[in-house]
Structure formats: structure tokens, C-alpha cells
């Protein structure tokens, strides 16, 4: 069988290239170790490019156009912890292989894979979708005074903070022809069901009606000047915003602002790395010829593979260690 495979798919043949398993004496490294570190160096530059874009755009953002406190901090903290735990289990898996304990290796690797899977699931089925149903409207500066009750710019000016131009919350009614009409309708039904109020939908055809977030409900409250750990309930206050006063309106999708654009791009790319790591770990965990199957013939080779896959995984963890504070906290 393996002959057949190697005949038609030379991709799977093994060559006699030295130092695939044994270290070269003068460098003390086997080739894959060097290779993965070079790859990680390029990854540093890839994420470096993205982070420098983040810095560039954040510094360049006009006051009030770089939002904060819009992400779910407890969930982010949990995901950070999950990645850290998986980093511990993956070194344990490698150490187990080094000590030739296959059973332990399988267990630790399974935990690592599960941690990765949980991380991605939380991201894709909870965090991102929650953002896609959250709405923000940037008010034109010349119209901002009309919406002072939601923006609280006088209070912010007095206390020396950046102005606020955005009203966020759940969209209950959108101007005619808006692509968010369907979402608004759905939210309005939910709102009516929860509160028993049916005043969310206005007859006017060019109004946004937003069930505003706690910040916009009491913008001059000092309690809102600092971010909060636990996400607060959306208030039942409704803001009615005329489309003429709107600079831009969007759900919390990449197009919402440069903040969400960088957030989705960096976490998306990071998520792809997590996915890639999971797939590699699955390959090494299952009895493929290059996976656990390798244990029988050359356990040291398998340990090397786990080590370099682990290095990649730690790097993915390391990137997240920076992603978490810059998007969730600061």
C-alpha cells in the first residue's frame, strides 16, 4: 500500500535527506526545528504588520472614533485561559512522548485539541455573532448636539475625555431600504416580547431606532467613564436618530470602523492559525503513518513533530496574549 502511494504520489515518499530526526552536530538542531522557527519569524512579521497597522490607525484615529469597551471581557478572559491551559498540555504531551508514555501523550494531546476547539467554538458561535447583532450609529458632528442626551459630550469635555460620536445598541427600526431592515424587525419583535412595549417602530421612514447600551442611556454618569468587566444589560431607552444626522451606521462588522476591521482581521487570522494547529494536532493524535503510527517505528521522530507543532501552538497563544489586551481591555 505504501509503495502504491509513493508511486503515484511522490509527495508522500521519504527521501534520505539528513538531519530530519537527528540533530546536526555543529548547529545542534534537526532541520524541522530550524524550519519552524524561521516560519515563526515570518509569522512575527505577518502579525507585526497587522499590529503596526493597528497602531498606525489607532494613533491616527480622530478623537472619539476608536471605540472601547464593546467586547465581552469575561468571555475573552476565559478564552485566554483556555489557550494558556492548552499550551501547558501540549508541552506535557511532548514530555510524555519523550518519556515514551504513549497513553499520557494521547490524553494530553486530546485535551489540547479540545481546548483549541472550545476556543474556536466560543469565537465563532458566540463572540462574533453577538457582534453582528449589535448596532452602532456615528452621528455627524454638526448634529451631535441634538443627541446630547445619548452622547454626553458636555460631561466628557468637562472631565477632559475624548468626545463620543456613536450611539450603540440593538437596532429596532431602520430607514426604508436599509439592508438591516430584517434584523431590525427581528429585534423589535424580541423587544416587544420582553418589555411589552410596541413603540419601537416609528412611522417615519428615515429613522433609526436603537435600544441603546447602558453607556448611551446615561452618558454623563461618572460610572460610565471607565470600562466595566461584566457586560451590562442593554437599557430599555430608545434613541430615535434621523438618517440625515448619521455619518455612518453599521452592525459591529468589519465595515463598522477601523477598530472592528482590525479586530476581525487579526482575530480571524488568529482563528485560522488555531484551526491549522488543531488539524495538525489531530493528524499527530490519530494513527496515521505520520501521526501516532510513527510511534512504533520512530518515537523520537514523532516527538520532534509534536515539538514543532507545539512551538507553532505556543506562538498562536503568544499572539493571543497581545490580541486580548489591545482589543478587549485597552
Amino acid at each position: 500500500m505504501s509503495n502504491l502511494i509513493s508511486k503515484y504520489f511522490p509527495l508522500f515518499t521519504d527521501k534520505e535527506v539528513p538531519h530530519t530526526v537527528q540533530a546536526r552536530p555543529d548547529t545542534g538542531l534537526y532541520s524541522a526545528k530550524l524550519g519552524i522557527w524561521l516560519f515563526l519569524a515570518s509569522e512575527v512579521m505577518l502579525f507585526g504588520g497587522l499590529f503596526s497597522a493597528y497602531i498606525f490607525l489607532r494613533i491616527g484615529a480622530e478623537p472619539g472614533y476608536w471605540p472601547s469597551g464593546l467586547l465581552n471581557v469575561p468571555v475573552g478572559t476565559m478564552n485566554t485561559a483556555i489557550l494558556i491551559i492548552s499550551s501547558v498540555t501540549v508541552v506535557f504531551a511532548w514530555a510524555a512522548l519523550k518519556m515514551r508514555q504513549l497513553g499520557k501523550y494521547r490524553l494530553y494531546m486530546l485535551i489540547t485539541i479540545l481546548c483549541g476547539a472550545i476556543f474556536l467554538t466560543v469565537k465563532l458561535s458566540y463572540e462574533w455573532p453577538a457582534k453582528f447583532n449589535h448596532f452602532g450609529v456615528f452621528i455627524k458632528k454638526e448634529s451631535a448636539s441634538k443627541y446630547e442626551a445619548f452622547l454626553g459630550n458636555k460631561h466628557l469635555e468637562v472631565t477632559g475625555q475624548n468626545p463620543r460620536w456613536e450611539i450603540t445598541g440593538h437596532l429596532l427600526d431602520a430607514p426604508k431600504g436599509s439592508s438591516y431592515a430584517h434584523q431590525a424587525e427581528h429585534n423589535a419583535e424580541h423587544f416587544a416580547h420582553e418589555t411589552g412595549r410596541h413603540d419601537a417602530v416609528t412611522p417615519a421612514e428615515d429613522d433609526y431606532v436603537i435600544q441603546v447600551d447602558a453607556v448611551n442611556a446615561n452618558p454623563s454618569d461618572k460610572d460610565n467613564d471607565r470600562p466595566h468587566f461584566w457586560p451590562r444589560e442593554t437599557s430599555t431607552t430608545l434613541a430615535v436618530i434621523n438618517a440625515k444626522d448619521v455619518e455612518s451606521a453599521s452592525v459591529f462588522a468589519p465595515r463598522h470602523s477601523t477598530y472592528f476591521a482590525t479586530y476581525f482581521l487579526i482575530t480571524g487570522l488568529h482563528g485560522l492559525h488555531v484551526l491549522g494547529g488543531i488539524l495538525v494536532f489531530l493528524y499527530l493524535w490519530l494513527p496515521f503513518p505520520g501521526g501516532t503510527g510513527l510511534y512504533k517505528t520512530n518515537p523520537e521522530h514523532l516527538a520532534n513533530r509534536v515539538e514543532i507543532a507545539g512551538l507553532f501552538w505556543h506562538f498562536v497563544d503568544l499572539v493571543w496574549i497581545f490580541v486580548f489586551p489591545i482589543f478587549y481591555l485597552l
Binding site: I84, S87, F92, A95, K98, P227, F229, F324, P325, L329
Partner: peptide, 27 residues
């Protein structure tokens, strides 16, 4: 390697604590 295992656990714990510290300090 076995002796390293303890070190890995300690570092893992330190990372978890520091995550808490990051979150706490941001407030």
C-alpha cells in the same frame, strides 16, 4: 524532562494569574 513538568505547571499557573492581573489593571 520530568523535572521540567513542574516548571511547566508553575509557568502555566503564573500565566493564568497574570491574565487576571492584566484584566484587573485595565480597570
Amino acid at each position: 524532562i520530568a523535572s521540567h513538568a513542574v516548571e511547566y505547571l508553575k509557568v502555566g499557573a503564573a500565566l493564568l494569574v497574570l491574565t487576571g492581573v492584566t484584566v484587573g489593571l485595565s480597570y
